[in-house]
Simulated assay, not measured.
Amino acid sequence: MIFPNNSHLFPHTFFLAGIPGLAAAHIWISLPFCFMFLLAVLGNGILLLLIRTERSLHQPMFFFLAMLSFVDLVLSLSTLPKMLAIFWFGATAISSHSCLSQMFFIHAFSAMESGVLVAMALDRFVAICNPLRYAIILTPVVVTKIGGLVMLRGVGLTISFPSLAHRLSYCGSHTIAYTYCEHMAVVKLACGATTVDNLYAFAVAIFLGVGDVAFIAYSYGQIVRTVMRFPSPEARAKAGSTCTAHVCVILFFYGPGFLSVVMQRFGPPAASAAKVILANLYLLFPPALDPIVYGVKTKQIRERLFTILSFNRIDST
């Protein structure tokens, strides 16, 4: 990633504060963070391997799930190692270009995750509201195009964040009050006008947050209407169960994100530790919990995983 040459205004190094006020507890805080990191890498790695190798899982729903696992894996690898280095070794320094690169990956892949959740809502909408045309509407070509659009949208909306932050002048503190290089946390350190950065970040947040959530809400509104027309409770329960995992993942992603935005905008200054913890949960919860939810709630994945584990157990004996 190439940035304009204005290094006399932009610092060579930033410092990540970790969790303000809780430096003495960083070692203990690192334990659940490390556990979630291992869950994210192992869980998403297994999901990707299962979907890649099992032909019965080569369906639109599992293609989108593979995209979700890939995005979660990238988010974990771009944030957790540096967080753990801060907690374990006090390695708070981060080069400016590493900071900007991390900023891009965090925001781009968070936007992609939101887009994947929209695509998964569309998949459930078609599967339940128009099941007879499911294979006609969501063909492999269409699904691939949707996946490409999700990726391009995520990159296109956020690629300007590092460049916007890089053009600013930083003449005061270079300490970011986070465990990672979040765009607005970096911009707040600038001593010049930041109106463009604030407006653009707000516009992207509204477009992704309000737009994507509105589409998901509309899709599930139609799904609920359709399910309620089913003649038997068993049919309604079966249809609803196919959406359970997706609804849980939506809550994991947008729940901490919404609370983090509210805390950032309206929370008191004294709650800085709570702000940082919520911001961390926004990045940590989905990658760690998504594979568990889909592994437990999705019959095809659960059965395939049990088959592999049973086969390995027989071989070992």
Rank of each mutant, 00 (worst) to 15 (best):
A237F: 12
A274S: 08
P256M: 00
L189E: 00
L199F: 09
S219A: 15
S232V: 11
G221H: 04
T242L: 07
T175D: 01
P268G: 05
Y180M: 09
P233D: 08
A271N: 00
P256A: 07
P269A: 01
A203D: 07
L305K: 09
T175S: 07
P256G: 02
G211F: 04
F202H: 15
F285Q: 05
H246M: 04
R236D: 05
T226K: 12
V213Q: 15
F202C: 14
F230R: 15
F207G: 10
T194S: 05
A177Y: 06
P231W: 11
A193Q: 09
V196I: 12
F253T: 13
G211E: 03
C243F: 07
Y254N: 08
A270V: 12
P287K: 06
Q264K: 13
L189W: 10
I292R: 05
V249G: 01
P231E: 14
P291S: 04
T195G: 10
A235W: 06
S173A: 08
F285V: 15
V227D: 04
S169C: 13
F161I: 01
A193I: 02
T195R: 11
Y180V: 05
C171G: 15
P268Y: 00
A235G: 06
F253S: 07
I176A: 02
A205R: 13
C191L: 07
R167L: 14
L283D: 00
I301F: 05
G172A: 10
R304H: 08
L189V: 03
